[in-house]
Design a protein around this nucleic acid. Structure first.
Lengths: 209, 209
DNA sequence: ATCTGTGAAGCACTTCACAGCG
DNA sequence: CGCTGTGAAGTGCTTCACAGAT
């Protein structure tokens, strides 16, 4: 049975809430309590879990540790994932310096840029390689996810290269709609789009269309 | 008539594609062509526009400039928006330095942090204020959107402050599910969640659940 | 001939509501 | 008695398909 993307995208949310509960020492949690902290309905949480198994105990709820382990297994979070960063400009360097990836098992193991002044320099222990060599480097040294942090103009070309390397997941910071085969996952990180989606609701409280 | 969030969140995408077409000098575009570049169906694009008016010409398509103007008007993109940044750590400084906001009319006009070593210093022309003064400062100096870039532990407290200031839109970089009144818009920017939503599909090509 | 705008149909996601288990 | 797991109902989003405009 095909499970919806929407379901898959909620699982990490559940996992995060459970991790917080676990570090608080909580042993059991109900769908209702999870629902309240996550702004999702309790029925939806139970239904989402039901696609993968029966993890709860009727009358009691879910064992936090066990449920978290299950979710991690389902999502593949109990492994290390290798990422390649393309684009070591301002944004790329911020991504490279971000401390949030490592603890979750995401390690940037290659970094590329096309600026001769940057190629060969070292950042956070990584030597920046030439984007022109991307396909060669990644052919020998496979990664699981590509992070695209280049300007809009070059982004699709970089994405095409990644696809040719057989990449199956791309985290796209560039402001373009990536064209990829259906088998390649793409997630967009785009604060400007997020802001533009909110301003609609901000325009003069009167014209609530 | 109530228009779905999903529709609203697609409009900025359309606007961006149209802006690209406009700067290429294109005068007319069909829903089909837009669909191809954005990976959305042509029918959906036409339906989305239809909630707001009749912008096209049958047999011809849409005038790029006119349609872009309409979308900007609908979304409120033809104004300047004032933002406040809370959290001037590594992430906050990257946000402050990001060049992508200004050209789209988003200007960060206040920045806060709670670290005494940072309060009072200047960054990108802004003096960092004490987060403890947030409600006082924003009471006098209204902003449209709050950008939350503090660690998970302090995030809900900051969000509560923003809500008390009457804020109606929050861009949340903190890894928590914000609790806000229904009238407040929240958009999450969270690369880790995005990655975790993709790893599900990467786990051994064999176990395609 | 072409492409929009749109009711209606189709499909997918969410919620309901309750049987069943602890 | 409380809470899960789940068919069934309900709701809402997307696609279809075509009348109508140019």
């Amino acid at each position: 049975m095909k499970i919806s993307d929407l379901v898959i995208d909620r699982l990490p949310l559940y996992a995060r809430a459970l991790a917080a509960l676990e570090s608080d020492g909580r042993e059991v949690v109900s769908s209702q309590e999870l629902a309240k902290t996550l702004n999702v309905s309790a029925a939806q949480i139970r239904k989402d879990f039901s696609y993968f198994g029966r993890f709860g105990k009727q009358g009691r709820g879910y064992n936090v540790r066990k449920l978290l382990d299950e979710l991690r297994r389902i999502l593949g979070l109990n492994r290390q994932w290798r990422l390649a960063l393309i684009g070591a400009g301002r944004l790329g360097r911020a991504i490279l310096g971000y401390e949030g990836f490592g603890p979750q098992g995401f390690r940037i193991v290659e970094a590329f840029d096309s600026d001769p002044a940057v190629i060969g320099t070292s950042l956070n222990g990584l030597t920046i390689r030439n984007t022109a060599d991307l396909e060669n480097v990644l052919a020998k040294n496979k990664v699981d996810v590509g992070i695209v942090a280049v300007p809009a103009e070059g982004a699709q070309r970089v994405i095409d290269s990644l696809v040719r390397c057989g990449i199956r997941a791309i985290l796209n910071y560039a402001p373009i709609a990536a064209q990829v085969p259906a088998a390649v996952q793409v997630r967009r990180v785009d604060p400007v789009l997020a802001l533009q989606g909110m301003t609609f609701y901000l325009k003069a409280a009167t014209d609530n269309e």
